[in-house]
Design a protein around this nucleic acid. Structure first.
Length: 304
DNA sequence: AAGTTACACAACCGCGGACCT
DNA sequence: CAGGTCCGCGGTTGTGTAACT
């Protein structure tokens, strides 16, 4: 037995709302409130609409004090940072931005902010990696590009952390990061790859050297690393994403490019760190993680 | 000027979970 | 406790319009 439909689809109007419908809905809610029952509301308000449609229209458009468009740099930063920490939990992100709706933020992210970040990263990457300038930089998200295995989340994947240095793990941020990472999948080309992170000397805040080995045993893997202690990646530093670098000549190497910092800091932060680290890196440099502890932190990830 | 493409935004859909009976 | 109902969320699709050819 299937789920009962929320309304009679054949008798409700769909598509864009007319000004008359808007005013009916506004007037009704101003007089009566939502009544805690969106299903019954359209009938009471004299609207031939599904309750869910009314709810959406009210919350995303008609509700007082709604702001549309024109996101500020501060808002960009907040969105990036929250996306880094909790992933695509738009309602939670929206709660931090008065006047913004989850739908608005989601659309803004998908249409503008993601591209803005990607462009900044690609620009910096190309600038500092002439060897790879012919290669394809591909944005990846679990929902759109990663294969089903990756989209299935961490439980379907095997993550092994191997330590080749002295670092500790932070369980609290592990959980946050795993949750965030679980919503994404990062495809690492078909073979067994080792991913290492290391702190570039220029950015190391003094916590000591050493690298983190993160083994990805399967074709696909979510990425997560929350090792703290100065060497690792922190939840706060994990901004979004992933990029996949498909290496044409060295075809089994793939790279993750994880954005760092807020959108308007990307070029500056990435460029500075990448330029000082790139020369040292024997393996393809694929990622910079911006630090959460001020401007000193940061890590690279590379894959061999 | 007409046709096509790209983009931004609005709206819909289906699922999971909370709540109620 | 089980089943039904509804809400809220996130992903996806649809639509209008600006930009381009």
């Amino acid at each position: 037995m299937g789920r009962a439909p929320c309304c009679d689809k054949s008798s409700v109007k769909k598509g864009p709302w007319s000004p008359e419908e808007d005013s009916k809905l506004k007037e009704y809610i101003h007089k009566n409130g939502t009544g805690g029952n969106w299903i019954a509301l359209p009938h009471k308000a004299g609207l031939k609409r599904c309750g869910k449609s009314c709810r959406l229209r009210w919350l995303n458009y008609l509700r007082p004090n709604i702001k549309h468009g024109g996101f500020s740099d501060d808002e960009d930063r907040i969105i990036c940072n929250l996306f880094a920490t909790i992933g695509s939990r738009w309602s939670i992100i929206a709660a931090q931005l008065p006047g913004r709706t989850d739908n608005d933020i989601k659309n803004y992210w998908n249409t503008k902010l993601k591209k803005k970040l990607m462009h900044g990263l690609q620009h910096a990457y190309n600038h500092h990696s002439s060897k790879m300038q012919q290669q394809q930089l591909l944005f990846l998200t679990a929902s759109s590009a990663a294969p089903p295995e990756a989209a299935a989340g961490p439980s379907s994947l095997q993550h092994h952390y191997s330590s080749s240095g002295s670092y500790g793990s932070n369980n609290s941020s592990t959980s946050v990061l795993s949750a965030a990472a679980g919503s994404r999948g990062l495809l690492v080309n078909g073979e067994h790859h080792h991913i290492h992170t290391t702190i570039p000397s220029c950015l190391d805040s003094g916590g000591g050297g050493g690298g983190l080995g993160l083994y990805l045993d399967e074709l696909c893997a979510t990425t997560s690393s929350s090792v703290h202690g100065g060497q690792g990646l922190s939840a706060e530093s994990f901004v979004f994403g992933g990029f996949q670098q498909l290496l044409e000549e060295d075809h089994h190497k793939a790279a993750l490019l994880l954005a760092a910092g807020a959108a308007n800091q990307l070029d500056q932060q990435y460029s500075a760190a990448a330029s000082s680290c790139y020369d040292e890196a024997k393996l393809p440099l694929v990622s910079l993680m911006g630090g959460d502890s001020g401007d000193k932190g940061g890590s690279y990830i590379y894959i061999d």
